[in-house]
Design a protein around this nucleic acid. Structure first.
Length: 409
RNA sequence: GUGGCCGUAGCUCAGCUCGGUUAGAGCGCCUGGUUGUGAUCCAGGAGGUCGCGGGUUCGAAUCCCGUCGGUCACCCCA
């Protein structure tokens, strides 16, 4: 262990069997996002720093202390993306797209924080953005997608927490009211909350230490203007109609500044760490304008894959092989031919060094988890191989050209 | 960024309080028993600068300091 082979603090190497769960989760995501009509969108892993400063918000925790920022050789300030929404909106604007557009992404994000269960410096998010419309139906559809995805994966106790933060005018008035309400009670606030109050009063609503006091505070959803209020109602009506359960959480706020109107989070019951949010999102009608483009409404969500997998437990490490090929002495080339032929036929198959003892090869076959082991031996000269079902030890000879179909039955 | 706990074979850990011959166990791994058979059994074997650096000492896995890493909570968030 002399040379340092560990990955950097807060990052992980993910190998089998854990990586099998990752494959399943990522495939499930691709499936659901396609079913909902989202095309794949890929943006750079790093961006100009000011994109995040303007997009995510100068007063947010993310921008103030969590960004991986460095200067490149061309003296540009570059930041590893701490989230993906600002990039996707930038890409939409840059491509000159008119009107509605739906994109899905998947990839690593970076935030400089003290690592903890369910909180890494490099973590994986999947998400979608639906731009160019302010219809509440789009909000409901985004929320439904995340819900279906989590339920399909088998996450236990999924619930959707829903709130509305109002339109910018509602929010300005509300924040002023909240600020004076909190300032009047500053003596009772925790020191952390008092600091937060100066920078961003709404985030005080998130303070765990002040939960009791906060429960008395005015809530954003109680101060909605007509437009936001009607939209909030419609989102709820639509969620009811498609059978997505949710609970209204009046004091739910989000850590990023760009949210307007709809804000939501997914929480699960099986995560036994302090981090309970599996995903979240909302509407951000002012974001495009803030990062320097035209005014384009949008709504989106982001899901934390690391946390979702944590909450899944390690139960389902599905076997990745259908068959394992072993060979007796001198049958190396025949065995290699069989492996190649099966792979071309769509069978997931592997072998180890076929010149090793049959015992060693069978041991590897057993460990691989493959249901069947195929023995290339003297039967090969008669056009067959011996197939052994590992679970019960039964063996039968199978014609070489029939193996692929035999394995599927 | 703040605080608590932890760092000995691939893995889980014992040994550390009361420093002292070649640092142990279980599991795993490799080879053989079976020159065509795994998961069981038997025999043998490989594998450790005791996280790293410094200090105290005749002598440090064991005591002291620092550092890095892990973990949990806060903060915050996915």
């Amino acid at each position: 262990m002399a040379p340092n082979l560990r990955p950097p603090k807060g990052t992980d190497d993910i190998l089998a069997p854990d990586s099998r769960v990752w494959r399943r989760v990522l495939r499930t995501w691709d499936d659901w996002s396609e079913r909902f009509g989202y095309d794949l969108v890929m943006t750079p892993i790093f961006e100009a720093t000011d994109l995040f400063e303007r997009g995510v918000g100068e007063s947010t925790e993310v921008v103030r202390k969590q960004m991986y920022t460095f200067t490149d050789r061309g003296e540009r300030s570059i930041t590893l993306r701490p989230e993906n929404t600002a990039s996707v909106v930038r890409a939409y604007l840059n491509a000159g797209i008119q009107g509605e557009w739906k994109g899905a992404y998947s990839g690593p994000q970076f935030r400089y924080e003290r690592p903890q269960g369910g909180r890494r410096r490099q973590f994986w998010q999947v998400g979608v953005e639906h731009l160019g419309t302010d219809r509440p139906g789009a909000d409901a559809e985004v929320i439904e997608l995340g819900y279906r995805f989590l339920v399909d994966l088998g996450v236990e106790g999924v619930s959707v927490q829903l709130n509305s933060l109002g339109d910018p005018e509602d929010r300005t008035a509300y924040v002023a009211e909240l600020r004076s309400w909190l300032e009047a009670r500053a003596a009772d606030l925790s020191p952390d909350a008092r600091e937060t109050l100066k920078v961003n009063p709404m985030r005080v609503l998130d303070s765990k230490a002040d939960a009791e006091l906060i429960s008395e505070a005015p809530a954003p959803s109680e101060r909605l203007g007509q437009g936001a209020s009607a939209a909030f109602d419609e989102v709820r009506t639509r969620l009811d109609a498609v059978g997505v359960p949710y609970e209204t959480t009046p004091r739910l706020v989000r850590g990023l500044d760009y949210y307007t109107r709809t804000a939501f989070e997914y929480v699960g019951t099986s995560l036994d760490t302090a981090q309970t949010a599996l995903g979240g999102g909302g509407r951000y009608d002012g974001l495009a304008d803030q990062i320097g483009g035209r005014s384009v409404p949008g709504v989106g969500l982001a899901m934390g894959i690391d946390r979702i997998i944590l909450s899944l437990g390690e139960t389902d490490a599905e076997v990745a092989l259908d068959a394992f090929v072993v060979a007796t002495a001198g049958r190396d080339i025949d065995a290699a031919g069989l492996v190649s032929r099966l792979r071309s036929a769509g069978v997931r198959v592997d072998s180890i060094d076929t010149s090793r003892s049959l015992k060693a090869q069978f041991k590897a076959a057993d460990r691989s988890g493959a249901a069947t082991t195929l023995v290339v031996g003297d039967e090969w000269d008669g056009g067959a191989v011996r197939a052994k079902r590992m679970a019960d030890g039964n063996e039968t000879d199978v014609r070489i050209e029939e193996i692929a179909t035999w394995l599927r039955s």
